[in-house]
């Protein structure tokens, strides 16, 4: 596994390299510009990111990095964040938050945890995870219920066509299966889109698949 070390601080880089010695191959970047280039080109498994890296603009830059290399696990090193900021960083997808003066022995533990697919997160933040989970689940259930209510407005035939669309069937195939014309299928779809407040069959397929999955 390749680990990309992004910092312009020589002491920090040295501690990281010491901690990772024999565990993984490493490469380094000393600015945000070179980091983005290496991230795209090398696709490292893990990125150690110094929050004081030249060119890094807080949360926005980290969001950018996550979008550039979705599979790379990002671990941030900083002097310490307030809970709210650290929580926001985890919510956009970072995998760990460490103090910038972590010693090699601690770096070893971090890499062990992150490699196992776990998070390096303070215990005091885990309660937020559960609270957020409750909130997200409530919201998801609310949306599913709203969609179910909308689906109840569909006629039996419209529902049938919506289910066939979710299987990926074309208008022609649906017409053949239901022994109706393609024009009638299109008319039904127009009515389905209107009732569900959506604009295309891809969204319809996604909605139907979610409904099937949750029921």
């Amino acid at each position: 596994m390749l680990i990309l070390l992004a910092s312009s601080n020589k002491d920090m880089l040295s501690r990281w390299e010491h901690g990772l010695f024999g565990l993984a191959s490493t490469t380094s970047s000393h600015s945000f510009q070179s980091l983005t280039e290496k991230l795209v080109k090398l696709r490292p498994g893990i990125l150690f990111l110094d929050y004081a890296l030249p060119g890094l603009k807080n949360q926005q830059s980290i969001d950018e990095l996550i979008h550039l290399a979705n599979d790379t696990k990002i671990v941030i090193f900083s002097p310490g964040f307030p809970d709210d900021i650290e929580w926001k960083l985890f919510k956009i997808g970072i995998k760990g938050c460490c103090l910038h003066d972590f010693q090699p022995i601690q770096i070893k533990r971090v890499i062990d945890v992150i490699s196992r697919g776990e998070l390096w997160i303070r215990r005091s933040l885990t309660n937020r995870i559960l609270s957020e989970l409750v909130k997200v689940t409530f919201e998801k259930n609310r949306i599913e219920q709203a969609v179910r209510d909308l689906l109840e407005n569909l006629t039996r035939r419209e529902y049938e066509i919506a289910m066939l669309v979710s299987r990926g069937d074309s208008n022609k195939k649906i017409a053949q299966q239901l022994a109706i014309t393609e024009r009638t299928v299109k008319a039904h779809l127009t009515e389905i889109f209107r009732k569900l407040h959506i604009s295309d069959r891809i969204k319809l397929a996604l909605i139907m698949k979610d409904i099937i999955k949750s029921s």
């Binding site: 985890f90 995998k95 945890v113 196992r116 697919g117 776990e118 998070l119 997160i121 215990r123 005091s124 885990t126 309660n127 995870i129 559960l130 989970l133």
Partner: peptide, 13 residues
């Protein structure tokens, strides 16, 4: 605080 395992924390996140 919450009491969940590290591995579960990652899955919830």
């Amino acid at each position: 605080e919450a009491w969940v395992s590290r591995s579960m924390t990652a899955k919830l996140m």
